[in-house]
């Protein structure tokens, strides 16, 4: 399994969404790695990419709503990080659509996405829970 309990940051709502996000990324990566010709895998790849992509946006939005609610001081910086990454994901999705989902580009995208996501959760999102714990106001 791609999700690990040690990625939990201690905010139940966020942890639940992170697990869902990792599960969707996992489905996408599994679709890429299926032992079949690339073209045969394309319908599943497109479906899992769309499924995952929507959730990235949904999760970032929900996380930002939560940050505003708790008065998180690093909300602006966090928003910019989400915004940059959302743009990257949207740009990739648009160019895949245009170029017919080239294998090399899609594989590279998936690798970067997974590494980015893990680091974002264990470093950037974690700071949010450190604030909550310090502030004691959930």
């Amino acid at each position: 399994m791609m999700w690990k309990d040690k990625y939990k940051i201690g905010i139940p709502l966020v942890d639940k969404q992170h697990k869902e996000l990792f599960d969707r990324v996992e489905k996408f990566v599994e679709a890429l790695r299926k032992d079949e010709e690339w073209d045969a895998k394309l319908p599943e790849i497109k479906k899992t990419l769309a499924f995952m992509k929507n959730y990235v946006v949904e999760h970032f939005d929900d996380e930002e709503v939560y940050q505003r609610k708790i008065g998180y001081p690093l909300q602006k910086e966090h928003h910019l990080i989400h915004k940059d990454f959302t743009e990257y994901v949207m740009q990739c999705a648009a160019s895949f659509e245009k170029e017919g989902y080239p294998e090399k580009g899609v594989q590279q995208f998936a690798g970067k996405l997974l590494a980015w996501l893990i680091n974002h959760v264990v470093a950037t999102d974690l700071k949010m829970s450190e604030f909550v714990k310090k502030d004691g106001d959930l």
Binding site: V29, R33, Q107, Q108, F109, A110, G111, K112, A115
Partner: peptide, 24 residues
Amino acid sequence: TLSGMEFNDLDDFSSSMLGEMANI
């Protein structure tokens, strides 16, 4: 370790993961 999946060869997926780690 990061993907929970077994890889046998260096490919675009694995090299891109390491590229992002080096970037971070």
